[in-house]
Design a protein around this nucleic acid. Structure first.
Lengths: 198, 198, 198, 198
DNA sequence: CATGAATGAGATTTCATTCAT
DNA sequence: AATGAATGAAATCTCATTCAT
């Protein structure tokens, strides 16, 4: 049917724009990436960007939603059906694996996550909450079931765990790209273990 | 040294521009901050920015140099004349205190530190090295003197320590500004202690 | 004449596009009205506009032709078989009634009628002549038959009569929509009576 | 003093932009006039337009304010110190003289005055009120002093008088530019006289 | 007969930088 | 030492038109 052809075409275009924007914005930052660049890399005309997204800002917001959505999904998969101590380890591994797979996006997150007063700040906070809440859920279950110290500040710990993994992993990608992921995982887990008593 | 009126005036103007640029760039990022914004917040005319700095880029580079210079000085003061284990604790306290005092600059560092492909990237790496080297020096001394595990990867540990303090402290400033600095220090030190065996 | 389903459908679509374009152009002007807007309000796809009209300009020209054609037909009906003095009154009533029924089109005419340097200017002048000529015909007949002053400048009087009714009626629609049409008719006829001595 | 030089320079530039925009917009309408055109005719760079006016819309609003302001001033001068019947005649003469002097602006007003839903609609209504109020003031005084029929709807009459002069004068300028202003004045005054009983 | 995704020329707007005062 | 008007290159965004389905 005609509809399918059109729909598919549009979906393809949007995906190509997503991918192009993701790479470019991650590398150069949001403001330094132009819509011309995005269109060029996606292989479409500039007008097509605006046919598919209402503005450069809107494109970026959808990008954030998309990227953080994937991370949150990975987190949910990591905690499914395992004990809290194992869940914490799985979450660390999931975050590091995600960062390795989407290093550009990780850099982007590290740059934008703690910045206030940007148009998309609220969106980002909301998305962050969804991801961090999965971590917090695992920690809370661990406290409730007696695996972790009852005095643990679950929300703070979840936020810290998320942030620490992000900063250490990106530092590793930027300054020691030769080191193996396993190494970094090992180091991180050793540190975290002390904190939550895994 | 005696400063005459003119020099003091110029120094004042430069400081006002530093402060204005710092806050704005921390909030909105470098590209999204305009020279007009900076001049407006500093309470001077736009031309004055160019009278004092050769370009927007140069202003930002000097800003980084200035800010990281202060941090490095604090680090040097923290490690002076104390034993390595005490030095590590003092460094953590120094970094957190610095971040609390210059929160805008801390946000700015967190946003820019791990971003490549920017004009000032090299400058920033150089500055970062100077600060991180102070931490590395303390750790190395600790290893040499037998306080810390000989297997400790000093450079990586120093980088991680620096980054972890930064991300946890900024997260705290942004999302839990009511919590006391002492709390955060406590939490951080507990974690770190396990790692380096302080 | 029998219209089959297809023809009726096409006629419907064209009429819907006419109506949509009319309202929008009356409100925002020709340039400020986009083909997207027109399609949206008509409830059809953008391509349909181009299937039915060769261009935005052509749509507008046909619109003018259509609207002024209706008005001219009303004028002709008004003057048919009545004496010149009655014809003038009937023309005023006809113009006001038309404006009340097609208020968007009236606004549009008032905006475009006296604007030069537009592509459709010539078309509009032609159409205007047809309508104004009906008025002029009634006036000339009145002069020839001795009802009106022989010194009456028929062409100018016809143009003025047409314009005055238009501006007063649109002013009434825009600024005093609650006032009754009869009121406005009464006021206008009183004024005109003095001029042409009806 | 330096200030004066700068201020004068800026004032000059703004005036040049005013003049350029006025001519162009009057000729081609608002939407069809580009900021490039305006800058070119004013002999400045495009950026200068935006240094002096916050947007194309804002420039247009100030233009309307300026043009209608002049008309209102002419109206005030016309009614100063004369009896109401003379004031009405003087107002008609003033409006016609203004339209002859600023014919482009008059066309512009005729096009925009009865158009709703434009960004500057409110501004224009406000400005129109100021001008029409001067007419209404003269009429009211005439009613109060017994010169005009007590039943006269002052507001409606003022609006109609304003509109009729505008449409008739512009019609004259566009379709019979050879006819003298005195002629048109004569014709209009004859008509109006019947209405208000001057 | 109708659709709507895609286009690209051209519009508006922004902003780092220069320069005369 | 400071100013702020002016600039123009480059950014974002718009929209009439085309075309494959």
């Amino acid at each position: 049917m005609a509809e399918d052809g059109r729909t598919r075409r549009r979906t393809d275009t949007r995906q190509r724009l997503y991918d192009a924007a993701m790479e470019l914005i991650a590398e150069h930052g949001f403001s330094a990436t132009t819509v011309d660049d995005i269109a060029l890399r996606a292989g479409v005309a500039k007008g097509t960007v605006y046919y598919n997204f209402s503005s450069k800002n809107a494109l970026f917001e959808e990008l954030l939603r998309h990227g953080v959505g994937l991370l949150t999904a990975d987190f949910r998969a990591a905690v499914a059906g395992v004990s809290p101590p194992e869940a914490v380890l799985a979450l660390i591994r999931a975050e590091l694996a995600y960062i390795e797979r989407h290093r550009s996006f990780a850099q982007l997150l590290l740059s934008e996550m703690w910045r206030t007063n940007r148009e998309w700040h609220q969106t980002l906070q909301l998305l962050r909450s969804e991801a961090v809440d999965v971590i917090a859920g695992a920690l809370r279950r661990g406290v409730d079931e007696g695996h972790f110290d009852a005095a643990l500040d679950v929300r703070m710990a979840a936020a810290a765990l998320f942030g620490v993994c992000l900063v250490v992993a990106v530092d590793w990608l930027v300054f020691e790209p030769d080191r193996s992921l396993a190494d970094v995982q090992e180091a991180l887990i050793t540190v975290i273990r002390a904190r939550v008593g895994v």
